[in-house]
Design a protein around this nucleic acid. Structure first.
Lengths: 152, 152
DNA sequence: TTCACTGCAAACGCTTTGCATATGG
DNA sequence: CCATATGCAAAGCGTTTGCAGTGAA
């Protein structure tokens, strides 16, 4: 609990500092959204975040959610993943290491992994193509263990 | 030329066989679309394909293009890549080995690569997570050599 | 003749935008 | 104060769907 709280305070400080630096307003909505994200585990999409906040009687609009995501992504407190045309997913990113995803085609479950061998592949590709790689996305799609059993 | 022609004939045979097997109709539109794709190099999106065919005075609709893509994907003559929410790209796939992409953020250029080490990563992830991986997408984003020079 | 396929346009789902109102600095 | 943010609803954009007409088998 205390550790949870520490993180809440810490990310609030980071966000506050970022907003001040960039001369953006420190609105209650922005902090409410940050709080909601960091008191909640795992991956989420805009719609479920919207509904969750509506349920708690926050007055918040989707436009503001999208807006605030931009800010949170800019200061590395949130990361965005586009898993398919109509499946954009966000996750809190503070102090979490870069990682990749396995997505279940049946139930939509998302699991994370991190394999250092990927960095070697990227280095090789940079050498061969002359590109300077800034970002990557590696997504594996398939069936999770639960759905494997159900579907058979 | 002759080699190009051979491929055109070969993929037409494959498509024809597939349509017969699945009891789908062999419409002129379907073969016109296949032909257009295979007489054209590299990656393309639906809209540019649509415009290209309109320019040649084919009477074709977007709905039919999307429809036919499904068929061509089913018989492995076309592969689809979703590079971002509003950036779906297709490419001819006959006899080409599975590969991944480096995309230039500045000019949109797409290059391909194939690194066997990725299969090892996938196997490891299957072992750890219990997922059965059916498909993957690895995209590297960055700056191509040309844009590196221009942007500096 | 029949029904899968087609073109066209309207509907979709997520995201962005426009605008009037509210509020942080 | 007033420029930036906000909520709401309308518009955007690639894709999908519904439907009446067409043509492959």
């Amino acid at each position: 609990m205390s550790v949870e709280n520490d993180i809440q305070v810490k990310v609030k400080d980071i966000f506050q500092g970022y907003l001040e630096e960039k001369k953006h307003r420190k609105t209650p909505e922005r902090f409410a959204i940050l709080n909601e994200i960091y008191s909640h585990a795992g991956h989420f999409d805009i719609d479920s975040l919207y509904k969750k906040m509506k349920d708690k009687n926050y007055r918040v609009s989707r436009a503001t959610l999208y807006n605030t995501m931009e800010l949170l992504i800019s200061c590395n407190l949130v990361r965005k993943h586009q898993f398919g045309k109509n499946l954009a997913v966000f996750e809190k990113a503070h102090q979490s290491k870069q990682h990749d995803h396995v997505i279940c085609n049946s139930c939509g479950e998302v699991m994370e992994f991190c394999d250092p061998r990927l960095q070697k592949i990227i280095s090789t590709v940079e050498d061969i193509t002359g590109y300077q790689v800034i970002d990557h996305s590696l997504n594996l799609f398939g069936t999770c263990s639960k759905c494997k059993i159900i579907n058979q």
